[in-house]
Design a protein around this nucleic acid. Sequence first.
RNA 1: GGGCAUGUGGUGUAACUUGGAUAGCAUGUCGGCUUGCGGAGCCGUUGGUUGCGGGUUCAAAUCCCGUCAUGCCCGCCA
Length: 640
Amino acid sequence: MAILFCDCTTSNGRLAREAFAEMLQVAISLAYPGVEIDRERLVSTISISKPSHGDLSSSVAFVLSKPLKIPPRDIAVRVAGLAKPTGHVFGMEQEGGYINAKLDRAAYSKVVMAQVLLEGENYGRNQLGSNKRVIVEFPSVNPSKPWHIGHLRNAILGDSIANIMAACGYHIERDDYIEDLGLQIAESVWGYRNIGNRPDKKYDQWLGEQYVKVNKIMKEKDISGEINEILKRMEDLSTEESALARTVSEHCVDAQYETAFGYGISHDLRIWESDIVRAKLLEKAMRLGMDNGVLELAESGKYANCIVVSLDKVAGGEDSLKDLAEDVKVLIRSNGTATYVAKDVAFHMWKFGIVPVEFMYKKLPILQSGNHTLYTTAENGERADFGRADIVVNVIGSAQRHPQLILRSILGAMGYKKQADRIVHVAYGEVGLSEGSLSGRSGGWLGEGRSFTADTLLDEAKKKVAERVKENTKAQKQEVDEKAIAAIAVGAIKFEFLRIAPEKSLVFAWDKALDFGGNSGPYCMYMYTRARRIVEKAEFDKGDALDAAKSGVMGDVEFELIKLLSAAEDVFEKACVEYRPNVITDYLLDVSSTFSKFYEKVPVLAGGEQRDARLALVFSTMQVINNALLLLGINTVERM
RNA sequence: GGGCAUGUGGUGUAACUUGGAUAGCAUGUCGGCUUGCGGAGCCGUUGGUUGCGGGUUCAAAUCCCGUCAUGCCCGCCA
């Protein structure tokens, strides 16, 4: 098999744009000697255009119009007239002020298909991240309740962003921070002792329901003294309460990870708050802050005996930290306990390897999707290579913008500006219900009829999918197993959550969540299965496809598909730098619907001499849909 | 009081960071398509002063200013 393309490290989509830019640059210098345009600027004027406007389009004439004082149309005419074909780009013409170019269909489709087929699962992957270490933290749910649909959005986003960054050449560590010393756990421990300690259902569900009961009791009688006593004792790691808190939390997190397993979401590391305390990370971090003068001990006044930071002092250029009701943020309370922000500052010092703390790690025998190994921090264990990140991505609700900003400001003021700038807060809009709220305290996630847990959602989706599959595959006398049904249900839910831009809020409604038509995951998955069946019927394998790709495809719809396939790498990169998986969902819908039009219009198997080249295109499309779905954490199925 | 986010056809949304051609997609409405590789599909129809008002520009959903609406945040809660 001859290598048809010249540069394996660059996508053909990019090569085509570069070639077009080259053409334009030469033509511009011929037309207007002395005029220089930055190459990057030039490339940025080029976009893939609609079929009615050629294949590639540049608006460079508008840019040059002002300095040259010549109307865009005249520039376009002149430049287009002087351009000479480069690479696979030719046929330049002017329309209004635009300069459009056509691609050599046969040649271009050959190289694109060859690249897709040769690179296979790696197609679209790139080295943008040059192996930099990234910690993606998600979803860090309190170990006192099951994941509800809000937590699920967090987990799905985090998992997908981690996948996308990994595909762009970053070294990814997926961390889950478990807060086992917080007030919520103290309340759980109180419930465990006073209401019951025998789970009669999935542990997280049971614990969550109990937590809601405790909160009801708290409204009726004052047990806050007892709970505070438990909380205080928990923070001393030698107490029975502390051990109980950890045990209850571990059971709960294990149960939460059954949910994660069902959704195909995995982690590398669980980091426990109690292990952070044990390692004295907080003390070290606070001492560092005191030493360099950013943190100070208030000796008198309102904050006497607290360790505080002046927000005005650390604000830098941040307006949102100015004109606050209180200029002071407490990190260590007068009773010696730490606030959330203090813990977060310390935790981030570990993430970046600023404070040299070595945790002990244990491998956990938890089943994760893809047999992904899970570690946990532990009292006893071994050393392992975690932390020391170059970039930190925190997937946290947008409600926490303010504390995240304080975190960055404090780190920056302490002299870690570079690290502070490399904390990315993926601030997603909270998930709301059309009626009520998801509040954990009042038990909003329990719902009236159906609960709003991630488990319930998946169960309902599976039921719905099973019905649909049964109906749909009747004609083919094909069995579709439970694994495939689960994959489709997961695909439907993940796609539905990911197609909405992260910063947008999301109002959950059952009928919408379980409607799998149109812009949906199942639609894309269905196109994959259709493609697969065509290829199976033809008994066409990858070797055949590589041979057949030598012919190229010429039709309009075919070529639209080729153009889309060649854009994969650009799309993956865009999704990565913007931390927006919806860039991928959009792309998938585009590829899927274009493929759908293609097979509706063009009979592949009865295609005469074009049959094999079209089969190669079908094969290539399958690969691209598969690769893009994997970035969303969605697995393809063979039948549906 | 201050800060942040959001506002796009009946509904859900994309494009906004980096301004470009007729604002893309789905759902909904109404109508059509199957002796063909599988109809979770395809084609057509309908529906938009991109919250509002200014400004910058050859060009604004996109940038700037103002304004309105909604949500979130501003704690020795997490």
